[in-house]
Design a protein around this nucleic acid. Structure first.
Lengths: 187, 187
DNA sequence: AATTTTATTGAACATGTGTATAATAAAATT
DNA sequence: AATTTTATTATACACATGTTCAATAAAATT
């Protein structure tokens, strides 16, 4: 038996394409299911067969970006060693470059009217990436709290970066991050 | 001339009360304008005269809670001195106790389907509170980035706390926060 | 207390949501 | 190639949204 029905692939593709196309003109929260289906030439009932709301459709695109984030991050970060050795090379942190690359996407993620769900997905991803490194440092009970602290601190920088409309370069953000970490160590 | 029309006060009060009452039964994103107006015995058109959507009505309640946060925080935090002196007394940090006090409220704020807007309001508040203390430590250009890092780190802990359904006590959270800061210093 | 101002109401309208149904058509299976 | 399976469509429904407008009633002003 076939794994996936070609009709489903076609339908989902058309809806994805329609949404991404419409996002060039309108913010996510102003795009209706009806409008997407009109654009994609897909029956509205079919939309609800695969998704519950516009955000669910967008979430599929979201997850693709998260893959790139993981790939970007996994390069040579080795977080703990860097954190502890105090020999942090800014160029080894790729997360800011990833955000810069998908600037347009992150403008959506960080917009006011978007549900928290996306932020949590992003948070989870960064959290997970950090968690791989922290293992030995903290007791199991506090591990989650510590990585939540660390992960969201970085996201805080990205929120601020976004608010400044990404004026700084990714490299500058890297340097700032190092500076902030060093500030913590030095004192 | 009168500053405020009594009719407006009455209407807004009725809508507030209706929303808060309904929040006991349903999550925010499942409450419709129509239902609130039905409950409050207020014409739907009148709602739209004062608010654009359910979230705007909720935001008024939100801002009241933010006042309490400021009051809680402003007690004896004096963040920089604590951060630098390494003589942090956990009992001086009141933010976790504030969250614990308004647990029910923060369950709404941190729920998946709520817009990012509330998170940003919270972020701004914490940010502002931190900013008062940091002044001298960083150059003006990096100040925002540093406090965004710090503020969101704390929010990260609260997110994790919320996810664990507030199992830990506020005092435990305080201690953990100190532990994490100390970890930064010690290494 | 009479008059002016304006918030509220009720009604209507075009549009969107979410769900359900039978008819159709496209893909998978034999 | 014929048959079976199932995704898609067209249509309809009850309900919500967001806006508009004249009529009303409540508050403020004189």
């Amino acid at each position: 038996m076939k794994e996936i029905d070609l009709r489903i692939v076609k339908t989902k593709g058309a809806l994805q394409e329609a949404l991404l196309s419409m996002l060039k003109d309108k913010p996510l929260h102003m795009i209706s299911v009806t409008a997407i289906c009109r654009e994609a030439k897909i029956n509205r009932g079919t939309f609800y067969m695969h998704y519950g709301k516009v955000e669910d459709l967008f979430e599929e695109y979201f997850k693709e970006i998260m893959k790139d984030l993981t790939d970007s991050y996994m390069e040579p970060y080795k977080h703990v060693q860097i954190l502890l050795s105090n020999e942090l090379d800014p160029s080894t942190i790729r997360i800011f470059h990833h955000v810069e690359k998908y600037k347009k996407f992150y403008r959506i993620i960080f917009s006011k009217y978007v549900p928290m769900a996306y932020y949590y997905l992003l948070f989870d991803q960064v959290n997970q990436l950090l968690n791989q490194d922290i293992d030995e440092k903290h007791h199991a009970e506090n591990k989650n709290m510590f990585s939540a602290y660390q992960a969201n601190a970085i996201l805080g920088m990205i929120i601020e970066w976004h608010r400044e409309d990404f004026q700084k370069t990714a490299t500058e953000m890297n340097n700032l991050f190092v500076e902030i970490l060093n500030f913590h160590f030095r004192k």
